[in-house]
Design a protein around this nucleic acid. Structure first.
Length: 268
DNA sequence: CTGCACGAC
DNA sequence: GTCGTGCAG
């Protein structure tokens, strides 16, 4: 074997080594991005975000929200739930923390203590179990409303489980949820957190080329009625809340989605 | 799954 | 205030 051949082989090995090493570094970097920021990246093009009536939209890695300072809770929380994100872990529940991203100051969890009301997640903790940081992130007080326990663990819990069922069946859905911050409401705690009299939830399936949306409006008390009993049109929710829900969508599609209160295309 | 209460530190 | 444990719908 000539010296020239040996030099060539050494050169090839070095080049290949560098290539493999760089590929390895890139892979590590991508893993880090996926584990911490994939959702955030997706949120940069959220086409389905509602308008804010309060002027304070906050983006977290796992969900976005519009905070109502007078009522010390979000007027809506929006997030995407993909089929691949439906996992069951057994994370220990952390303590609720004040959301520093809310510039007007989010409520303290002690407002709820011994109030008789649950700290009701709006983006459910169970929907962010695919990543521990995102799970913990749902335990911000900007993501909760006061809810009666029998409502939260009852009909509202049933609806949240149905959303997970649809996320699996339809390969991912968008979800918008919140309390209706209107009318006469009770308040709890030193910061006077409002207790909504109704809660709403909108679910959209965008994945099969024929988007469909469904809206629910529930009185703030438990019920044994079937979930479809609470279906309303998105238009009626907009009239009730003053929020414009799919303003970024094409008008024709927006009008079609929002006028309907039919649930015939949804499997219960 | 949805949560709270209580006692020890 | 934080943490572990127990209990309820």
């Amino acid at each position: 074997m000539s010296k020239r051949t040996i030099y060539s082989i050494v050169a090839i090995v070095i080049v290949c080594g560098i290539y493999v090493f760089e590929t390895y570094l890139n892979t590590k970097e991508q893993d880090a991005i996926i584990s911490k920021g994939k959702i955030e990246k997706d949120l940069t093009n959220l086409f389905f975000l509602p308008t804010s009536t309060t002027g304070q939209i906050v983006h977290h890695d796992g969900y976005s929200l519009s905070y109502s300072e007078p009522h010390e809770q979000p007027e809506w929380v929006a997030y995407e739930l993909k089929e691949s994100q439906l996992v069951n872990t057994n994370f220990k529940r952390p303590y609720f923390e004040i959301d520093d991203a809310v510039k007007t100051g989010a409520a303290h969890w002690s407002n709820y203590k011994k109030s008789g009301y649950d700290r009701g997640h709006l983006c459910p903790a169970a929907d962010r179990e695919f990543n521990y940081d995102l799970y913990v992130e749902t335990f911000l007080t900007s993501n909760i409303s006061p809810q009666k326990h029998d409502f939260n663990s009852g009909v509202w819990n049933r609806l949240e489980q149905k959303i997970r069922y649809w996320a699996k069946r339809y390969d991912g859905v968008y979800v918008i949820t919140g309390g209706v911050l209107k009318g006469n409401m009770k308040v709890i705690g030193d910061e006077r957190v409002s207790v909504p009299n109704q809660f709403y939830k909108i679910v959209m399936d965008y994945n099969d080329g024929n988007p469909k949306a469904l809206a629910f409006l529930m009185p703030h008390h438990n019920s044994a009625k079937p979930l479809y009993h609470f279906v309303v049109s998105i238009d009626s929710l907009e009239n009730l809340t003053g929020i414009d829900f799919f303003s970024e969508l094409d008008d024709v599609l927006e009008n079609k989605l929002e006028a309907s209160s039919s649930y015939k295309n949804w499997h219960f």
